[in-house]
Lab assay of single mutants.
Amino acid sequence: AQVHVDGVTYDFDNPEEAEKFAREMAKRKGGTVEVKNDQWHVE
């Protein structure tokens, strides 16, 4: 699973880890999390 944050792509073998990371980053940035094509996007 991939997580996109500020133009940087992070690869995770485990989708749950990807989701956890995406939500944590969004919380830190005060942003939102979107899922597109099985990829997490932190805005």
Rank of each mutant, 00 (worst) to 15 (best):
E17C: 15
N14G: 07
Q2F: 07
D11I: 14
G7E: 03
E43M: 15
E16I: 10
E19T: 00
D38H: 11
E43W: 13
F21G: 01
E34G: 09
E24V: 00
K29H: 15
W40R: 06
A1W: 15
V5T: 02
H4W: 13
T9H: 06
E43A: 13
Q39Y: 07
A18M: 01
H41T: 12
G31K: 07
E24M: 07
W40V: 06
K29I: 15
A18K: 02
A1S: 12
N37W: 07
P15S: 12
E34K: 14
E34S: 15
T32R: 13
D11W: 15
F12Y: 01
Q39D: 08
V3P: 00
T32K: 11
D11Y: 15
Q2Y: 07
T32E: 08
T9I: 14
M25P: 00
R23L: 11
E34R: 15
V42R: 05
E16D: 11
K29G: 10
W40M: 08
G30S: 08
K29F: 15
M25V: 12
E43G: 12
R23T: 10
A22Y: 06
D6T: 01
D13Q: 08
V42S: 05
N14M: 03
V35N: 09
G7R: 01
G7I: 02
N14Q: 04
A1K: 13
K36R: 13
Q2A: 08
H41F: 15
M25G: 00
P15Y: 12
M25D: 03
D13F: 03
G31V: 12
K20V: 04
H4D: 04
N37K: 09
T9N: 04
G30V: 05
K20M: 07
A18G: 00
E19W: 04
V8F: 12
Y10S: 01
K29L: 15
R23H: 13
K27H: 07
P15W: 14
E19I: 03
V3S: 00
E34A: 13
M25Q: 11
W40I: 10
A1P: 11
Q39F: 07
E17D: 13
P15L: 12
E17F: 02
H4A: 06
G31T: 11
V35G: 10
A1Y: 15
T32A: 08
R28N: 11
Q2H: 11
T32W: 15
E34Y: 14
G7D: 05
E24Q: 06
A18Y: 03
H41Q: 08
F21K: 01
F12R: 00
G7K: 02
Q2G: 02
Q39L: 07
H41S: 08
T32N: 09
F12S: 00
V3H: 00
E17H: 02
E19D: 08
E19K: 00
V8E: 08
M25L: 11
F21M: 03
N37H: 10
V8W: 11
F21H: 03
V8H: 10
V33R: 04
N37C: 15
H4E: 09
A18I: 00
K29S: 14
K20S: 09
E24N: 03
R28M: 13
Q39P: 05
K20T: 06
G30Q: 08
F21T: 01
N37V: 08
E17V: 03
V8Q: 11
A26E: 09
Q39A: 12
Q2E: 04
H4V: 15
F21I: 02
K20W: 09
H41V: 14
Y10P: 03
A26D: 03
G7W: 02
D6A: 06
D6W: 05
R28V: 13
T9P: 05
G7F: 01
Q2V: 10
H41K: 06
T9Y: 09
E19A: 04
E24I: 03
V35D: 05
A22T: 03
A22P: 00
D38F: 07
V33K: 04
A22W: 07
D38W: 03
K27T: 11
A1T: 14
A18D: 02
G7Y: 02
P15M: 12
E17A: 09
N37Y: 10
D38Y: 06
P15I: 13
A18V: 01
P15V: 13
K20Y: 06
G31S: 10
N37M: 10
K29D: 09
V42E: 06
E17R: 00
V42P: 05
D38P: 07
W40P: 07
F12A: 01
K36C: 15
V3I: 03
E43P: 07
H41R: 10
